[in-house]
Design a protein around this nucleic acid. Sequence first.
DNA 1: CCGTATACGTCTACACTGTATACACGTGAG
DNA 2: CTCACGTGTATACAGTGTAGACGTATACGG
Lengths: 210, 210
Amino acid sequence: MSGRREEILDAALAIADEHGIGKVSMRALAERVGVTPMALYRHVSDKAELLDGMVGRLLAGLLPPDAGQDQAWDERLAALAHAVRTMTRRHPWAAQLLFSRPAVTPDAVRVVDLIYTALIEAGVPDREVPRLERLIATFVIGFAASEASGRFGTGSLDPRGRRGRLPEGELPGHSRLAPWLDLPSDLDTEFEADLDDLMRLIKAVAGGQD
Amino acid sequence: MSGRREEILDAALAIADEHGIGKVSMRALAERVGVTPMALYRHVSDKAELLDGMVGRLLAGLLPPDAGQDQAWDERLAALAHAVRTMTRRHPWAAQLLFSRPAVTPDAVRVVDLIYTALIEAGVPDREVPRLERLIATFVIGFAASEASGRFGTGSLDPRGRRGRLPEGELPGHSRLAPWLDLPSDLDTEFEADLDDLMRLIKAVAGGQD
DNA sequence: CCGTATACGTCTACACTGTATACACGTGAG
DNA sequence: CTCACGTGTATACAGTGTAGACGTATACGG
């Protein structure tokens, strides 16, 4: 009935994109919409529900424009994974929220279903499909969240700092891998390689049983 | 120098365990320690640094008591993964924080190094080790965070609710998998199966190149 | 013994936060 | 006309992180 709710959600989204999720307060949002803070509660029961609505709105943008039925299952899966990553790069604040609530909104369920059908088409036994969906989604979201929140470090300065801070010899792995750790990590190609590995994993599960 | 900082960190940890991370406020923490809120700032520069210190303290508990050198690489890796999961089950609030900052604290680096050496021992080419470490850690932390924050749903009620809310036929994957979705998910065995798959993935990367 | 440095803690105050409660105004239906 | 309903407002409360100025207790070098 009311596009007002969507209007509010989009305003919140705009604030988050411009100034970070931390600046999304009921007062700031109200001012942006042009109302009193309490007016928001007519359209949103909680601040939590507001945040839920925001991620819901982003998830809706994840669905491929056309059904994309012409692509093979692995291409559809890769496209979805890339869509998640580009989404969290445009909206870094969203990555953390994806872990916060079960995927019960209609849009989220539709995305899950896309993964289900892709895995079925890949030949994964029905019994294993939900587990593999969670495995893949968990990794993809986790990667996006790590990237967005800085867990992967900020570049080449980081690994050097690591080794220096601990007594020599206590980190055999780090010292052996030193040449590779000093390279500035290219997360684009890394993500690609990770996806390749996951596809192989899916094929292994599919091939082993059917 | 000052065991006082550790004392404060442990008090914060206790509050988080008893009443949830949301109840960890400078005022509540100060009262627990028996001081004025502002006194905490002598030992901790920020609330953010306080939270960082809390996860650091938990990461320290992740290291195996003895070096555990007698176990094979895959057993050491599995043990580490299980340790993360049990840690986030005991401290559900911690899972989200693991995504928040790069692993630069000494304890975190030591954990990363354990994974490095395990992967090297597995025969993974040096060049691929850091990537695989990130892949595995990302999944394990993501799984723990999902479990802790409810992303995996709260049981069997959830999947039924999902399908009911959307028009029939729009979710082919869900309707085909209905029998499996209604089963209460057993996250213990699911995590085990996921680890098995990841081990296979590691062996594949190792075997393909050396 | 004295002066000083350092670590630690207190008090007050500010600018925010989410939201409960009570009230006002429009519009459309019976 | 009246009543309900959807919407927005005004006020208020309890809680948050933390800046700034001020004390005090212990230890150390002359």
